[in-house]
């Protein structure tokens, strides 16, 4: 049983508790909260302060019970005020209106063409090795495209380069190699350049052939350049492009403008040399990736560089063809259909 005094005190406390609930429910802003805070907890005239004053009048044996009641109220007041403060200080959020699981807003960013992207990857590797980038005309003369590169007129070697002609003497360059000649005519060794660009062949479009595609050419001319340097530089390049562990093979070949000539194969990434029916490597496990060789002495003579003093090496590689292999693209025509569903994927590359 509670003593009458305590019961009376409890009633008083309950009245204040009701008051607290009513008044705090009406609080809309921090200023009102501050007023209410003052009303209850002011050190001089606050309700709680005054109630503590009353506590002194209780008998010693009733004091703990009364104190317990009052402290409970005080805790309630403080908890409610701090909850209110937190609520008022965070912006109003009508319930359920903001669903933060919704997707974010993105800026739309255009995509680079995959051939250009791959070209830049290649260029960056060579630029890091100290190569410069050169260019030349796409409409070429027979002289630069063939003759100066040691393709005599009427030589069957020309059949390997099916040509689109403008006139007897003008054509669409079939490779980027004529730029080698143009650069060597103007500049004395040392020369260390790459030449990316469009080239043209008289080819009917199919999944692996197009009348226009991209090639990148490299040329190094200096004193003391050897086939070992050709191997070293191209191996470094291919490992940067395809990964340190890629297997590389140099084998003899023929190009009129290099002697000795080498074709470079890398292991087939499609089947890892494991599928005898692989469509990419024909089951050989090797994929032909570029042509190269030591600059032919006749080419040097054609540009008045003494082949006894200088030597050099050159390479040529299809950019789109290699990109097909690197990205696993089965049809070369995708590159020039310019379907945005294809191109936009390369924002991720």
């Amino acid at each position: 049983m509670l003593s009458p005094n305590i019961r009376k005190f409890k009633t008083t406390i309950d009245v204040y508790r009701t008051k607290l609930e009513e008044q705090s429910a009406q609080i809309q802003d921090l200023r009102a909260l501050e007023e209410l805070h003052h009303q209850f907890l002011s050190r001089k005239r606050g309700t709680i302060t005054l109630l503590f004053e009353q506590l002194k009048e209780f008998d010693p044996e009733e004091k703990p019970a009364a104190g317990q009641l009052l402290n409970a109220l005080k805790n309630e007041v403080q908890e409610r005020f701090s909850a209110l403060e937190t609520k008022l200080k965070t912006p109003a959020k009508p319930k359920g209106e903001i669903d933060i699981s919704l997707p974010g807003e993105k800026l739309y960013w255009g995509a680079p063409h995959p051939v250009r992207l791959f070209q830049q990857e290649i260029e960056n590797i060579f630029v890091s090795m100290g190569f410069s980038i050169e260019g030349g005309p796409e409409i070429e003369t027979d002289y630069y495209n063939f003759e100066a590169l040691n393709f005599p007129p009427h030589h069957p070697a020309r059949d390997d380069w099916d040509t689109l002609y403008i006139t007897d003497k003008l054509l669409l360059r079939t490779h980027t190699s004529p730029v080698q000649i143009r650069v060597m005519e103007k500049k004395k060794p040392p020369i260390k350049i790459i030449i990316p660009g469009k080239v043209f062949r008289r080819e009917t479009p199919d999944p692996t052939h197009l009348p226009m595609f991209f090639q990148i050419e490299g040329l190094v001319v200096d004193k003391g350049i050897t086939f070992a340097h050709l191997k070293g530089t191209l191996e470094y390049f291919l490992k940067r492009l395809f990964g340190e562990r890629i297997k590389i093979r140099f084998r003899p070949s023929f190009f009129p403008f290099t002697e000795p000539s080498a074709e470079v194969d890398i292991e087939c990434l499609a089947c890892g040399a494991k599928n005898p029916d692989c469509r990419i490597c024909g089951g050989t496990g090797w994929k032909e990736i570029l042509g190269s060789g030591m600059v032919d002495p006749q080419v040097f003579k054609n540009v008045n560089i003494d082949p006894e003093t200088y030597s050099g090496w050159a390479f040529g590689m299809g950019i789109d063809r290699t990109a097909m292999f690197a990205f696993g693209i089965s049809d070369m025509r995708y590159f020039f259909e310019n379907d945005l569903r294809f191109i936009r994927q390369f924002t991720l590359k």
């Binding site: 255009g110 995509a111 063409h113 020039f336 310019n338």
Partner: peptide
């Protein structure tokens, strides 16, 4: 790219 243009390459 920033203006939202995608790059294309056409045959000449």
């Amino acid at each position: 790219f920033h203006h939202g243009f995608d790059e294309v390459i056409n045959q000449s």
